[in-house]
């Protein structure tokens, strides 16, 4: 009961506020003055290629890395002054599954829970819940080095939930996982959203961002290039459909000249040409009518990948 009243009380207050946030390592500007806000219960994504500044931003939010400049408020507090207080209410799932190798699965959860000062009695039932949640009940007494990649990832996520965090931070949660393992994870993350956990996710997978994020920022070279819901970003920065045509790597450039006027915009990549249009089939007919014959052609819906390409001129996963 007190939960619902306290929830209402600070429902309006944002969970995270960043203003002109900067992080500089020597000469290298990793995060170059970014602004964003994350509301309670929201699933917020940081999208960008490797080196865009996502992980650095995550570490500053996680209150383990101090900012070089700007303002940052997490759960209403400044991490420079209240690091441990903030971290006590966060859950962090780092990029690398840094589990203890000598301890068993349940012991990893138990010791981690103790770091929050949680009592063993509470942790016993909590560990049962989390093992069920992560589908690791049968692995309870196994050393972590014997787990598969997907299992380790689920255990790391379960570990991040031991203190029932207000904000769960996931740094590239499904990188390196097979499709089935990714879908299991996405399902688990949806369930957390239903409980009201605020999620902050970094990814360079477009489908993941579209699946998981209510709102996201596109980052490149330490800056925010765009912000919005996946649908809004696609609407703003791309067309409804995309026609992908291939003429062979040597011909793409010359053919591109003849394609001018078809679709609203062209993007010429080394291996294919993207034609942005509201009607992909019609554009393809136009191309064939003009006497050009692509080796392959594909009509698809616009995705965040196209947004990113439009904004940065580069593909996400090089």
């Amino acid at each position: 009961m007190s939960k619902s009243t306290s929830k209402k009380a600070d429902a309006a207050a944002p969970m995270i506020v960043a203003k002109g946030l900067r992080k500089v390592y020597g000469d290298f500007v990793a995060v170059d003055g970014i602004d964003f806000e994350v509301k309670r219960g929201e699933s917020f994504g940081l999208l960008g290629p490797n080196g865009a500044g996502k992980s650095t931003t995550m570490k500053m939010i996680a209150s383990t890395s101090q900012r070089t400049g700007g303002e940052l408020t997490i759960l209403g507090k400044d991490p420079n002054d209240f690091g441990p207080e903030i971290r006590a209410h966060l859950g962090v799932v780092p990029q690398q599954d840094n589990l203890d190798r000598e301890l068993k699965v349940w012991e990893n959860l138990m010791t981690y829970g103790r770091f929050f000062g949680l009592k063993s009695g509470f942790l016993k039932t909590k560990i049962d819940e989390l093992l069920e949640f992560a589908q690791l009940e049968e692995k309870r007494n196994v050393k972590t080095e014997e787990l598969s990649g997907g299992m380790k990832r689920r255990l790391t996520i379960a570990r991040g939930l031991i203190n029932e965090p207000e904000i769960l931070m996931l740094d590239e949660p499904t990188t390196g996982l097979d499709p089935q393992a990714r879908h299991i994870l996405w399902d688990r993350l949806f369930r957390l959203k239903e409980v009201g956990v605020t999620l902050v996710i970094t990814t360079h997978y477009m489908d993941e961002a579209e699946q998981l994020c209510d709102r996201l920022v596109v980052m490149d070279k330490g800056k925010i290039m765009a912000e919005g819901s996946p649908a809004d970003l696609i609407k703003t920065y791309s067309s409804k459909e995309v026609l992908e045509v291939r003429f062979g790597s040597d011909n793409n450039k010359t053919v591109a000249k003849q394609l001018k006027g078809i679709g609203s915009r062209l993007e010429i990549l080394p291996d294919r040409i993207l034609v942005y249009t509201d009607d992909g089939e019609a554009a393809l007919k136009q191309i064939l009518k003009a006497g050009m014959h692509p080796i392959t052609s594909l009509v698809r819906r616009s995705s965040l990948e196209d947004v990113f390409l439009r904004l940065t001129g580069r593909t996400l996963v090089d």
Binding site: P84, E85, H89, G117, E166
Partner: peptide, 21 residues
């Protein structure tokens, strides 16, 4: 649905930072 939802209290209520500090 897993039990994780039923008993969820949230860290604000569950964790008193003074203890680990």
């Amino acid at each position: 649905m897993t039990t994780v939802n039923k008993t969820w209290q949230g860290a604000a209520k569950l964790v008193d930072p003074a203890t680990p500090i």
